[in-house]
């Protein structure tokens, strides 16, 4: 079952400066999500990371995958309905830079007793920048 791309602020509780998904391209709840984050020089964290060489912190790439993973849920998330419980096998393969259109691809690996494992990749122009498995817990 494919769901239409979601209204992002209606689905995720995150807000500026921490809403890190700009567009949902494909969405199959419980199975797979493809979303995008567009990086600009205006990102608040790039002011200090780093002044001479702006690049998106790796932990924020993981957060982007986690937020994209929120769209695996069929229903909108209210408040802190889901939290990050673990990160496994994270690999950072290249920098994400201002101007990049980041493709966030996540797939559900399995779930048990409110805990879900998702595998995700952040890529740009076909190059993988980050891959990781995330464990998320539903409250």
């Amino acid at each position: 079952m494919t769901a239409p791309p979601a209204d992002i602020p209606a689905h995720l509780p995150h807000r500026y400066p921490f809403l890190l998904v700009d567009r949902v391209l494909e969405r199959e709840p419980g199975v797979r999500v493809v979303a995008e984050k567009l990086v600009t020089f205006g990102e608040p964290y790039l002011q200090g990371h780093f002044e001479d060489r702006p690049l998106v912190p790796g932990v924020l790439l993981l957060e982007m995958l986690a937020q994209a993973g929120g769209f695996l849920e069929a229903e909108p998330l209210r408040g802190a309905a889901i939290f990050l419980a673990g990160v496994q096998d994270a690999r950072f393969k290249g920098p994400a830079l201002p101007g990049d259109r980041l493709r966030l691809e996540v797939r559900a690996d399995g779930a048990f007793a409110g805990m879900m494992k998702i595998r995700g990749t952040v890529s740009c122009d076909g190059r993988d920048l980050c891959t990781a498995a995330l464990l998320v817990k539903r409250l």
């Binding site: 673990g86 399995g110 048990f112 007793a113 805990m115 464990l135 817990k137």
Partner: peptide, 12 residues
């Protein structure tokens, strides 16, 4: 509970 999920996936 993370181990529980890992075991469920491993058993499968």
């Amino acid at each position: 509970s993370i181990d529980a999920l890992e075991l469920v996936l491993g058993i499968e």
